[in-house]
Nucleic acid binder design. Structure first.
Length: 763
DNA sequence: GAATGCATGGTTTTT
DNA sequence: CCATGCATTC
């Protein structure tokens, strides 16, 4: 156990760090948990710590494994370490996402992977859309109707199962309900066809390395020996498999350093297990815990608001976020009539800030809960003169025209990829004339010969001079021959041509290039996307020819939208989901759609009674959004919104009730509605109550008919959500209501309004 | 087998 | 509203 901070208080690598940060940097032995609030300099700590290990502790780059949440984060971290160490080489240091690390591990051990897992070295990583295709085919294959058994739901059940390392057999054995059995059947079929396609999904990238270690303990020992220091960022969003993976890797040297913030855990739906961080001390009893609570990012008003909002949650480590920053500007709240007005307000306000407020567009981000909200916002930006970029939305690599071309490239790399084959046949001109019947015949041939389906088509090509060929006749045969010939030619080209030239041949020979109507503006945009793919490919020319295509395909599968986000100096405003915004920061942040049903999302509202956890996750999401802002924060919501093209009235989010009135500036009047006088809108009620702010929780509308019972301190009460509790304090309010502080047995102390809480006295 | 037109249902969040 | 899937028609 050595701590250098006492010996070297003024080391260059520690200069400018506060005491807690210095401890985090210099505590290099044993397990360490850093609980880092937003803006508390955790990236700085990670960067300095790695530099410290290399400079002061004689650790070699290849002995370090650092796992980040996005590739962008790891890129930035690597850059910063390099800058800090002035050009010292970091080669050998492993830094990237869990998924990238898993993929790399599998790629580095092709022999074992083939032996133990039955995957050939050219295996592909299936993305979300591929997984959907596969799940749907699995549903059909087990004789079920995809309309009744939603493939998406199957996929999420399968993912959840894989997230706790269950095989299809184990899942089937544990099935309790009929629905579980259905899932089990689909799961088994899904996994079978995934392997048959020589492909893995995202969950496999985490689970298969563990499976490999199980079957080959020697391999695990090599990695355990190598990684003297294992670091994990955004630890609150790791799932059980990721936890097991890092614990296994760090087992020998026991230098596991994790950084996270339980209050920013927003991936519960992806099996992220908040227990990983909450129970770290139990899992590693000798762990050092370091808290970073001082926020350097945001104004005091923003920090206090965030702190006040998150304190409502019951499932958290009690701590207080603080800052020494200036008070800053008030948080702006604005109600608009609908989504369109909201979008225009945002755009107008940004125009004002950029034209008269000295802001640049890239200082600004607009955040929202659901991807669907980006549509109206984008519309408003498009008609404005303000440049913008959307992070997320329809991903580049998921665009139909891009996926079509990628399908061919993937087939050239992995001929077993039937999802891509079907896609190519269905969407490219070269697939014309090949229907289900023809495909079936080729499948039969493939099953009989042990070849792939694609090879069945190639066998039809005269040039291939194959001894056997699928039994086809008539138009199907000639169509199959054409397809086979194209792939036969493309394979030859793939062996000798650089990627951009291969691309040219692909779009040419498959007839895809000719299929775009040059007079149609939309089609030209799609063609432009296809061409963007080509310029993408040009970057891979520096690699050895045999590695170009595989490296590219791997990159396509593992790159995220945030990763691809770059500052191009054009001053673009960022439109981004709250989830994607985690880890980012902007001087100016707008959070749009702060409404019941949206933030919190409907599902969480519906689940609330039976399960309060989703609601708490929604609140964390709001918290993440607030804490992205450095100086200016705008919160907007609409009195109504088009859902599925139908107008739905909306109510301000309950979360707004926690925004301290003293930090709030409410802008403008509410747009006129046709509802007449009575409205449950928060703004209306606040005005009606005579005080210009938020004093009451807006969620449930009080039943005016019943007189509210009065409560006194010491009285025992029952609450539908929080259960039994005791009134600690009862304060009379001017409006005749009571403000109660109640200590609940299971959920801690809460402040509730008597008229809203619906409390039952317990005698 | 392909093109066209109608019906239906789907929106959390992503590596 | 929009994307997808199915039925109808050629």
């Amino acid at each position: 156990m050595t701590s250098h901070s006492q010996d070297l208080p003024d080391h260059p690598l520690l200069r400018g760090l506060n005491e807690a940060q210095q401890r985090a940097v210099t505590t290099v032995d044993g397990p360490v948990l850093v609980v880092a609030g937003p803006g508390s300099g955790k990236t700085r700590v990670l960067v300095h710590r790695i530099a410290w290990l290399l400079e002061e502790c004689a650790v070699l780059p290849e002995q370090i494994l650092a796992v980040t949440f996005t590739n962008k984060a790891s890129r930035e971290m690597r850059d910063r370490i390099e800058r800090l160490l002035g050009g010292r080489t970091l080669s050998g240091m492993v830094m990237g996402t869990f998924h990238a690390f898993g993929a790399r591990l599998l790629r580095q051990n092709p022999g074992l992977v083939a032996d133990r897992l039955g995957l050939l070295p050219n295996f592909l990583i299936y993305d979300d859309a591929d997984q959907m295709d596969l799940a749907k085919r699995a549903v059909l294959a087990v004789g079920l109707d995809p309309k009744l058994v939603a493939p998406r739901r199957m996929l999420s059940r399968i993912s959840a199962a894989k997230g706790v390392l269950l095989s299809p057999d184990e899942f089937a054995a544990a099935a309790e309900t009929y629905d579980d059995e259905v899932v089990a059947r689909v799961f088994r079929e899904y996994q079978r066809s995934l392997r048959k396609a020589n492909a893995v999904d995202f969950d496999d990238l985490l689970a298969l390395p563990l499976a490999l270690f199980d079957g080959a303990p020697g391999l695990l020992a090599i990695y355990q020996q190598r990684f003297r220091h294992v670091m994990v960022d955004e630890y609150q969003d790791t799932n059980r498999v990721q936890y097991i993976l890092v614990s296994a890797l760090a087992e020998r040297h026991r230098n596991l350093f994790v950084v996270g913030d339980p209050d920013q855990s927003i991936y519960g739906w992806r099996q992220a297990d908040i227990r990983n961080i909450l129970d770290f001390g139990q899992d590693f009893p000798d762990a050092t815990r370091i808290d970073l609570e001082l926020n350097y990012r945001s104004s005091r008003r923003i920090v206090e608001t965030a702190d006040r909002v998150i304190r409502e949650n019951t499932q958290r480590i009690d701590r207080r976020l603080r800052t020494e920053n200036d008070e800053g500007a008030p948080i702006v709240l604005r109600e608009l009539a609908d989504g369109g007005h909201e979008a225009r307000f945002v755009v107008d306000e940004i125009r004002r800030l950029t034209q008269h407020g000295g802001r640049s567009g890239d200082d600004v981000a607009v955040m929202y809960r659901t991807g669907a909200q980006s549509r109206v916002l984008e519309e408003a930006f498009r008609v404005s003169d303000i440049p913008y970029r959307i992070v997320g939305g329809v991903r580049f690599y998921e665009r139909k025209e891009v996926k079509d071309v990628l399908a061919v490239l993937r087939l050239l790399h992995n001929p077993a990829d039937e999802v891509s084959l079907e896609r190519a046949i269905g969407n490219l001109p070269i697939g014309r004339g090949i229907g289900p019947k023809a495909l079936d015949a080729v499948r039969h041939w493939a099953a009989a010969t042990g070849e792939t389906v694609l090879d069945g088509f190639v066998a039809l090509a005269p040039a291939a001079a194959s001894a056997t060929a699928p039994d086809l006749s008539g138009t199907a045969r000639s169509a199959g021959m054409k397809l086979g010939t194209v792939f036969w030619k493309l394979r030859e080209a793939a062996a000798e041509k650089a990627l951009p030239e291969l691309f040219d041949l692909v779009v040419d020979l498959t007839g895809y290039a000719a299929a775009f109507d040059h007079n149609d503006e939309e089609e030209m945009q799609r063609w432009a996307n296809v061409l963007e793919l080509r310029s993408d490919l040009e970057k891979y020319g520096v690699l050895p020819p045999a590695e170009q295509l595989p490296t590219y395909l791997e990159q396509v599968a593992l790159v995220s939208d945030v990763d691809a986000m770059e500052d191009d100096g054009r001053g673009r405003v960022t439109l981004i989901t709250l989830h994607s915004a985690k880890g980012l920061e902007f001087p100016v942040v707008f959070i749009a759609g702060v409404e019941e049903g949206l933030l919190p999302i409907n599902r969480a509202v519906e689940a609330e009674w039976g399960d309060p956890l989703p609601m708490e996750e929604e609140r964390r999401l709001f918290y993440v959004g607030i804490t992205r802002a450095e100086q200016l924060l705008y919160l907007t919501y609409a009195a109504g919104r088009a859902v599925y093209g139908r107008f739905q009235p909306a109510v301000a989010s309950r979360f707004l009730a926690q925004v301290p009135e003293m930090h709030l500036q409410t802008l403008g009047r509410r747009a006129p509605t046709r509802e007449g006088g009575r409205s449950s809108s928060l703004a209306d009620r606040a005005r009606g109550g005579g005080s210009p702010g938020w004093t009451v929780s807006p969620a449930p509308v009080p039943d005016r008919g019943e007189p509210t019972r009065r409560f006194a301190a010491g009285e025992r009460v029952f609450h539908a959500k929080f259960g039994e509790g005791e009134v600690v304090e009862a304060t009379e309010r001017r409006d005749g209501d009571q403000e109660l502080a109640i200590a609940f047995q299971r959920h801690g102390q809460k402040r509730l309004m008597a008229s809203f809480a619906n409390l039952e006295p317990i005698p």
